[in-house]
Design a protein around this nucleic acid. Structure first.
Length: 237
DNA sequence: CCATTAATTTAGT
DNA sequence: ACTAAATTAATGG
């Protein structure tokens, strides 16, 4: 429950050189650059539900997500929150606030038990300046996220409740799990917060989809049974 | 350590 | 908003 999560214990890596989960941008670093990151990095793990970054906190570090899922969100008025996206492992948390401000604009919370590495922000800056390939990879991931999220929100604003729920299911299926059957990492409330509807509507539409044979639904387990129809609903709002 | 109960969270109407 | 169900924490043996 602590802000800093649990003490590190399991499979602690002793150097970035030996890290087995270097992907994308981290994969293009040379040995010296890895040592630069390594000199300031610290590892940590969080339990499901733990908050990793509070919006408004200073962004002194970039956090590399080594395993698990994280939600990126902003707090709205009383209890309401807006979930921007789900972040998958092997990506960086806090990138979107890196160059824009001195504080994080988004909060991050663990949707399952996760492990992370903190990278000092000045080391990160230096790597971007000195290693074009690294910067290129970072730029790709920032752009991709931007495009994805912006698109989702633009389309969402034109859709009715059913289309939004269909969108959410397709989002999990296509982007997060790459499968037609998956376990939601969300409560109904969080699902609603992702697509800007009420919790009640979320459950109502889910059971309606179930009744209509579009999905099979058990608690948080979802299997898409009628993909064409679901895509149709998503498309038509 | 396990079992029971209390408290909190989640789902459905 | 309210109730029921489920999950988690706390207590006592």
């Amino acid at each position: 429950m602590s802000l800093y999560g649990e003490t590190e214990s399991d499979s602690k890596i002793h150097s970035c050189r030996d890290c087995s989960v270097r992907h994308c941008a981290a994969a293009v670093l040379d040995v010296e650059e890895l040592d630069l990151i390594n000199s300031s990095r610290h590892e940590n793990s969080f339990k499901k539900g733990d908050i990793i970054i509070h919006e408004g906190s200073p962004n002194s570090h970039i956090i590399y997500l080594k395993s698990g899922l994280v939600k990126e969100y902003v707090k709205g008025n009383q209890e309401k929150e807006q979930i921007l996206q789900i972040v998958k492992k092997f990506s960086y948390l806090g990138l979107s606030s890196l160059f824009g401000d001195k504080v994080n604009h988004y909060s991050y919370a663990a949707l399952e038990d996760i492990s992370v590495c903190y990278i000092d922000i000045s080391a990160f800056h230096q790597l971007i300046k000195q290693n074009g390939s690294f910067g290129y990879e970072i730029l790709i991931s920032v752009s991709r996220d931007n495009l994805n999220n912006f698109n989702r929100f633009m389309k969402q604003s034109q859709k009715k409740t059913y289309g939004r729920v269909a969108d959410a299911i397709l989002y999990f299926s296509k982007i997060i799990y790459e499968s037609t059957e998956f376990e939601l990492p969300f409560t109904r409330q969080e699902l609603a917060d992702l697509i800007g509807i009420s919790r009640e509507s979320a459950t109502r539409v889910l059971t309606k989809f179930h009744e209509d044979g579009i999905v099979d639904l058990h608690e948080r387990r979802i299997r898409i049974d009628n993909l064409p129809l679901l895509q149709q609903i998503s498309k038509n709002g």
